[in-house]
Amino acid sequence: MVDASDLKSGGGFLRVGSSPTSGNEYFNIGEKMKWFQKRKGIEKESKKREIPDGVWVKCDSCGEILYRKEIEKNLMVCPKCNYHFQINSSLYKKILLDEGTFEEEDDNLRTLDPLNFKNYKKKLKEAMTKTSLNECIISGQAKIYGRDIEICIMDFSFIGGSMGSVVGEKVKRAIYRASDLNLPLVIVSASGGARMHEGILSLMQMAKTATALNKLETPFISILTHPTTAGVLASYASLGDIIIAEPGALIGFAGPRVIKQTIKKELPEGFQRAEFLLEHGLIDLVVSRKDLRDTVNTLLMHLC
C-alpha cells in the first residue's frame, strides 16, 4: 500500500475532494483542485492559482496556461509538453473502445466492511457519491475496431483505485470470462495498491487475481496509468503478456516517500516513472494516450 501523499494528483486514500465541481464530464468531482497540484517531483505543492473557473487550466508539468477545451480535445494531454493529466474510467472508455460497445458485467457486486474498519463505510459512501461509481473498477465486454475484448478499467478517484475484495473478484471474473469466451483481455490500471480498510482480505486479492491468470491462454495487455503501485502492480498489472505505460506515469512497488525515508537519500530524477521502467527493461512500451487505441489494436491483430 502506497501512501496517498506519494501519489500527487490522486484523491488518494484519504484526501477526498470536498467541494463539488461541475461541468466536466472527464473529471470526477473534486478533481479540479488537483489541477493545481504539481504532479512532478515528490514534495507536495498545492498552491491555488487565480484562474477563472474551468476555462483555463495550467499544465502541472510545463506551466503553460491552456484553454480547457483545447486539452479536452487532446484527450487531457498537454499539447505543449505531452503531460498526461489523470483521467477517469469513463474517459478511458471513450479513448480505447468503439463507441457504445461497452457492456458492463458484475456491476451488482458491492463492497462490504468485514473488518468494521474506522470510517470505511462513510468513505465508501463518499466515494460513490463523488464518482457515481460502485467501486474503483469497471469491467465487461467491448470492441476495439470491431474486435471483441474483455476489459477492466480502474479509476483512481475512487479511494485511490485501491484493491479490496470487489476489485479482486471483478478482475478474477473478467479473467475467467476472457478465458471462457476466448477473448483478449485488456486491463487499464490506476491504483495506490491494496485497500487497507479490508486488511488481509485485500492482500489476498493479489493472490486471487495473479493465480487466476494461470487459466488465461488469450493475450492479456496490461496498461499502466498514473499511478500504478504496490499491490496492484505486484499482482495482475505486472503479469500482462504485453505491458504498456502512459508517459510520465508513476509505477513502482513502494512509494517514493517510503523509499526516500528508508534509504535517507534523494531519489534520482525520473525514478519510478514509465520511462525509467522502460529503460530498466520492466515494460514493453511507453505509449501516448492518443496512440493507445491503435497500439492495442495492432498488438491484438498480431496476437489473436
Binding site: 513502482g252 513502494a254 534509504i263
Partner: peptide, 21 residues
C-alpha cells in the same frame, strides 16, 4: 519487501507477481 532504488530497478513488484502466479 525492501523499499529501495535497486529493488525497484530490478522489478520488485514484478518478482512478487511472478512468484504468486
Amino acid at each position: 519487501a525492501y523499499p529501495g532504488i535497486g529493488a525497484e530497478e530490478r522489478g520488485q513488484a514484478l518478482a512478487i507477481a511472478e512468484n504468486i502466479k
